[in-house]
């Protein structure tokens, strides 16, 4: 951001913006409202460039059988950049499987934070609400900070908050689909109906989707494929960073009401007759 204030009057406002608009989740404060998934990149070198360009301070990671993992270079990159880790339970189909995966992740990564993902359908990868709520309740009792990946159902969001989740993370559309936010009104309702942070998770295709999530009142955006599978992931990471910041500022600034007809922005008074 600019270091030269435009005017003395603007300086304090700019300084406040530069100091950030901190965001607290599970007791931790972040200045970036972009959470980045790490899956889908071709190399660890590109991971480092993407993480740095995005400005993210929180990234999701996973566990897989050791033979399927190429080495520990990912952890070296993430340690070097200094981001916080949010292990996921990707691929889990039942509450039992998800709880065990979360326990293994806590052991491996030394964090009690977990992105709880319990999938109910192979083709759409949509969350299984029944298993999700069951897993969330169990994990909260075991001391986890649960970030629940959920549908855009506001009532389910409320149930997850009641279960003690640290954050509710509704999808905009199916994972990796890039279809954006299909039901913006549900996201607005959900934001209004829960008090924990709401993180738009899944479905983001491009920068305007991320900006919309923030304009709808989400506290943060979690995305992976939109960046990692873009033709130029590093450039898209920067686009997402700016979109999240822009959407957040616009939300705070207050959008104008929508009108059916036009409203002139140049005064009619004093218009010459020519």
């Amino acid at each position: 951001m600019t270091t030269t204030p435009l005017t003395d009057e603007l300086a304090p406002a700019l300084a406040a913006e530069e100091a950030g608009d901190p965001f607290t989740i599970a007791g931790e404060t972040f200045t970036s409202r972009l959470v980045l998934g790490t899956g889908g990149l071709p190399s660890m070198d590109s991971l480092e460039r993407v993480v740095r360009a995005s400005g993210t301070q929180l990234v999701t990671v996973a566990l897989r059988r050791v033979e399927a993992v190429a080495g520990n270079s990912m952890m070296q990159v993430l340690d070097r950049v200094g981001v916080r880790l949010l292990p996921n339970t990707a691929g889990c189909r039942t509450a039992r499987e998800a709880v065990r995966t979360a326990e293994l992740a806590r052991e491996a990564f030394g964090t009690d934070w977990v992105k709880l993902e319990v999938i109910g359908d192979e083709q759409t990868l949509l969350p299984d609400a029944v298993e999700l709520l069951d897993a969330a309740e169990q994990l909260v009792l075991k001391g986890f900070k649960v970030f629940a990946y959920t549908t855009d159902d506001p009532v389910l969001g409320r149930r997850l908050e009641d279960a003690g989740c640290a954050a509710v993370m509704p999808l905009g559309s199916p994972i990796g689909s890039g279809l954006g936010i299909r039901n913006p009104h549900s996201i607005s309702l959900l934001r209004e109906m829960v008090t924990v942070p709401v993180v738009l998770d899944a479905g983001i295709g491009t920068a305007s989707d991320a900006a919309l999530a923030m304009e709808l009142g989400c506290d943060a955006v979690l995305l992976a494929s939109a960046v990692t599978r873009a033709r130029d992931p590093e450039r898209m990471a920067l686009a997402m960073r700016q979109a999240v910041e822009g959407g957040r500022l616009a939300r705070g600034a207050g959008r104008i009401p929508r009108r059916f007809h036009a409203q002139e922005s140049t005064a009619t008074a004093g218009r010459p007759e020519l």
Binding site: G37, G39, L104, A108, I175, A224
Partner: peptide, 10 residues
């Protein structure tokens, strides 16, 4: 027995 290691994921 399952022996697991960190990997990338969304």
């Amino acid at each position: 027995v399952e022996v697991l290691a960190p990997t990338a994921g969304g």
